[in-house]
């Protein structure tokens, strides 16, 4: 890969950088030397012939981040506190129609975590197992178990499966929605697959060559009054 531009960010096209400065000179000059150097490096990515569209997009958002510490509405501000964002999205989302959906989703996650914590605590008591013992058996830290019990750690699916095995119960006894989660994961995978595999492409091509089914159709009687 050609990274020459990055090693020499000052070698970027003078014309391109001049054009950029014409529109953003004030913002650029207000940046510290370090941030200006980052803008140069990102500009080098933008003008690098080998850079992918995704690399260019990321470089552009980084330049915008450097030049506009206070962003326009809807794009967040500099250094947002993630815990605070989660709390505030439900009441401050720019699209008011989405707020109830967000509230519902947060309530669902809270309820799942609360139910899981309760079930896990009951099983620990019933089996007389300490958090440390369970952690050792399930390849998890005691701290993670403690956080799960205090609803500060939403477990991964594989963690639930490991905990269930360590407690000798079915995973759905800890997380009843686990099967739904499996379906959601399949949907997520499906949405992610943007290209057909050669087998899928062959199957579709084969199917398109098949003659249409020879089923005799019959005209349906028209509805009264039509």
């Amino acid at each position: 890969m050609n990274t020459q531009n990055l090693e020499n960010p000052n070698d970027i096209s003078i014309e391109a950088f001049s054009l950029f400065l014409n529109t953003s000179s004030q913002l650029y000059m207000e940046c510290s030397d370090e941030v200006q150097a980052v803008v140069h490096e990102m500009f080098a990515v933008l003008t690098n012939a080998d850079a992918s569209p995704e690399e260019k997009r990321r470089a552009s958002t980084t330049i915008a981040h450097a030049l506009h510490p206070i962003a326009t509405e809807g794009h967040g501000s500099f250094g947002m506190d993630l815990a605070q964002i989660e709390k505030e999205t439900a009441t401050k989302h720019p699209d008011e129609s989405k707020r109830p959906v967000i509230v519902k989703r947060l309530e669902q996650m809270d309820s799942q975590e609360s139910s899981f914590a309760e079930r896990l605590r009951n099983l620990l008591e019933k089996r007389n197992i300490t958090q440390q013992e369970l952690g050792d058996r399930a390849d998890c830290t005691q701290s993670a178990i403690s956080k799960m019990l205090s609803r500060n750690c939403r477990p991964q699916k594989k963690t639930i499966i490991k905990l269930a095995a360590a407690l000798k119960v079915e995973p759905t006894e800890l997380w009843p929605d686990l099967e739904v989660a499996g379906i959601l994961d399949s949907v997520a995978r499906f949405q992610q697959e943007q290209e057909l595999t050669p087998e899928q492409a062959d199957a579709i091509e084969e199917a398109s060559k098949r003659p249409p089914a020879k089923t005799k159709g019959r005209r349906l009687p028209s509805r009264k009054g039509k």
């Binding site: 981040h65 993630l82 947060l106």
Partner: peptide, 27 residues
């Protein structure tokens, strides 16, 4: 504290257009 810089926020919106998945990632 966990703070998110704005380009990361934009990455997440692009990779996970649905709030359902983004809320999961946040947790």
């Amino acid at each position: 504290k966990v703070r998110v810089c704005r380009p990361a926020f934009q990455d997440s919106q692009l990779l996970l257009p649905r709030y359902y998945a983004r809320s999961e990632l946040t947790r």
